[in-house]
């Protein structure tokens, strides 16, 4: 088992780390990202993104390379192969695109007692996000 950190959680996933690659079965990749490997490319709902560099994105036995496949679906991944921890987030262009819509991104984060608080809890309110830190 290995750990993938995405925008919302830390997930235990099935991954094979070999030949300097973080490989996942198409099923595990789909469970993680929502994208399905099909002959026409990586597909979600009625959108398919073609895979131009199949040798990098897929291993000879059909496993998906997380770091190479991420850009195909508008994401970026960084993997620490030695420690079995990877992080998966939006690509710079996908993030920039979502920012310019000015739709406030939904989030759910724990409060001081560990209870989840969502931006949606305050729908129909004016909200001031106040970012701060101890550093």
């Amino acid at each position: 088992m290995a750990t993938v950190i995405n925008d919302t959680q830390h997930l235990e996933v099935e991954a094979t780390i070999s030949d300097d690659r973080w490989l996942m079965s198409p099923g595990a990749f789909e469970a993680l990202t929502g994208w399905t490997l099909k002959p026409e490319g990586m597909c979600r709902e009625d959108v398919c993104a073609p895979i131009y560099r199949a040798q990098e994105v897929l291993s000879p036995d059909g496993m998906v390379d997380l770091v190479e496949a991420a850009p195909v679906i508008g994401m970026t991944a960084v993997a620490d192969l030695a420690r079995g921890v990877a992080a998966l987030g939006a690509s710079a262009s996908a993030r920039a695109e979502s920012m310019t819509t000015l739709q406030a991104p939904a989030f759910t984060l724990p409060d001081m007692s560990g209870n989840p608080v969502s931006l949606h809890d305050f729908d129909r309110h004016k909200v001031l996000l106040l970012a701060w830190s101890s550093w």
């Binding site: 925008d7 919302t8 987030g89 939006a90 993030r95 979502s98 920012m99 406030a104 991104p105 989030f107 984060l109 931006l119 129909r124 309110h125 004016k126 909200v127 001031l128 996000l129 106040l130 970012a131 701060w132 830190s133």
Partner: peptide, 19 residues
């Protein structure tokens, strides 16, 4: 992740979200 989604590059900072 909220820092990333809202483009917060330093603290303290505010973002205003309407109704």
């Amino acid at each position: 992740t909220v820092a990333e989604q809202y483009g917060i590059v330093n603290v303290p900072a505010t973002v205003w979200i309407d109704e």
